[in-house]
Amino acid sequence: MKILFVGDVVGKIGLDTLENYLPQIKQRVKPQLTIVNGENANGGKGIKVEDYQRIQVAGADVVSGGNHIWDKREVMDFIDDPGKKILRPYNYPGKNVPGRGCIEIKVNQKKVYVINMQGNALMQPIDNPFYAFDELLPTLDKDAIKFVDFHAETTSEKIAIGNYLTGRVSAVIGTHTHVQTNDAHIFNKETAYLTDVGMTGSYDGILGVKKEPILNRFLTQRPNKFEVDDDGRMQIGFCVVDINDQTNNARSIHNYVINPDNKKFLD
C-alpha cells in the first residue's frame, strides 16, 4: 500500500498550494491513502471547517493536527463529527477530550490506523507520548497498518520515538518544524521514518511566516507580531511510504519538496 503524507499546510497560500499540487502529485504517485497535516491551515494557527473542506476536496483522506488544533474555537463545532476524518494529538490529558487521536479506516479491505501524537520536549506539557503509545497500541488490531504523525519540536525526541516504535507501527513521520529533513529510512526493515516532512506554504517566508517580524525579533529581542506570508512563492513538502499489506512492514520511503527551485518531481 502506498501512503502519501503532506506536511503542515500553512495559511491561505498553503491551501492554494495544496489545491494546485496535490492532484498532480496523486496522479503521479497513485497512493491508496492520502494524509495531510492541517493544524496551521487558518492563518497559521488552527483550522476551521472551511479549511478542512478545502483540504479534503484537494485530495486528503485524513487530516491530522498538532499543538495548534484548538486555536480556532470553531474547531469544536466539527471535530467530534464522525463524518469528518480529522485528528488531534492522542495524548492530550483528561478523559473527555474532544475529537480523536486515532482513526481506523479501510483501504481495499485492509485496516489502517492513522495515529496523531504530540511530543513533550520544548512543547506545552501534555501526557507522555511514549506511555501513550504503550496504552494505545495494544488496543488496536495487530494485523493492521499503523501510520503515525508525530508532531514534535526536537529531533532527538522524534528519533527516540522512531526507535521506540520500531516493529510496532508501519511508519513514523515527523511534523511541526516545517523544514524537511534528509533522513528518510527504515528502522530494522520494519518501520519507515522521517524526522520532519516539511511544510506546504510560502517558500519566501520563514517557516511560512513573513520574514521582517522574525528578523526584527532576533535583532531587537523585542516582541513582534508574526504574520503568515500569503504573498510569497509556493512550496510543498511530502513523502511516500510503501507498506507491505501482508507483513505491515515498510518497503520504502521517499521524501520530496516541490518549490520554485526544484520542480523535478513534476517533470
Score class of each variant (00 low, 15 high):
residue 44 G to W: 01
residue 42 N to R: 09
residue 71 D to E: 14
residue 95 K to M: 07
residue 62 V to N: 05
residue 107 V to H: 03
residue 108 N to W: 01
residue 80 D to W: 06
residue 49 V to I: 09
residue 115 I to Y: 08
residue 106 K to Q: 14
residue 37 N to T: 05
residue 83 G to L: 07
residue 37 N to P: 13
residue 54 R to A: 15
residue 102 C to Y: 09
residue 80 D to I: 01
residue 71 D to V: 01
residue 72 K to S: 08
residue 92 Y to K: 03
residue 78 F to E: 11
residue 109 Q to T: 06
residue 84 K to H: 09
residue 92 Y to A: 04
residue 71 D to Q: 14
residue 20 N to P: 00
residue 110 K to A: 05
residue 74 E to H: 13
residue 100 R to E: 03
residue 49 V to H: 14
residue 101 G to M: 07
residue 88 R to P: 12
residue 21 Y to L: 15
residue 102 C to P: 06
residue 106 K to P: 00
residue 39 E to I: 02
residue 70 W to F: 13
residue 108 N to D: 14
residue 96 N to F: 12
residue 66 G to T: 13
residue 35 I to C: 08
residue 31 P to V: 00
residue 37 N to D: 11
residue 40 N to S: 11
residue 93 P to F: 06
residue 75 V to C: 11
residue 56 Q to S: 15
residue 52 Y to V: 02
residue 84 K to P: 00
residue 74 E to L: 13
residue 74 E to Y: 14
residue 39 E to Q: 13
residue 107 V to I: 05
residue 116 N to P: 12
residue 52 Y to W: 14
residue 42 N to I: 00
residue 97 V to W: 08
residue 36 V to W: 11
residue 32 Q to H: 10
residue 35 I to K: 08
residue 78 F to M: 10
residue 22 L to K: 10
residue 47 I to L: 15
residue 23 P to V: 01
residue 106 K to S: 13
residue 61 D to K: 11
residue 56 Q to C: 07
residue 69 I to K: 08
residue 120 N to I: 12
residue 21 Y to D: 01
residue 108 N to M: 05
residue 114 V to I: 15
residue 86 I to H: 12
residue 90 Y to G: 05
residue 48 K to W: 04
residue 113 Y to A: 06
residue 107 V to P: 04
residue 118 Q to P: 01
residue 92 Y to H: 13
residue 80 D to S: 13
residue 49 V to W: 11
residue 22 L to N: 08
residue 49 V to P: 00
residue 29 V to Q: 02
residue 118 Q to T: 06
residue 18 L to C: 10
residue 42 N to F: 13
residue 36 V to E: 03
residue 62 V to L: 03
residue 115 I to E: 06
residue 63 V to S: 13
residue 101 G to A: 09
residue 108 N to L: 04
residue 50 E to F: 14
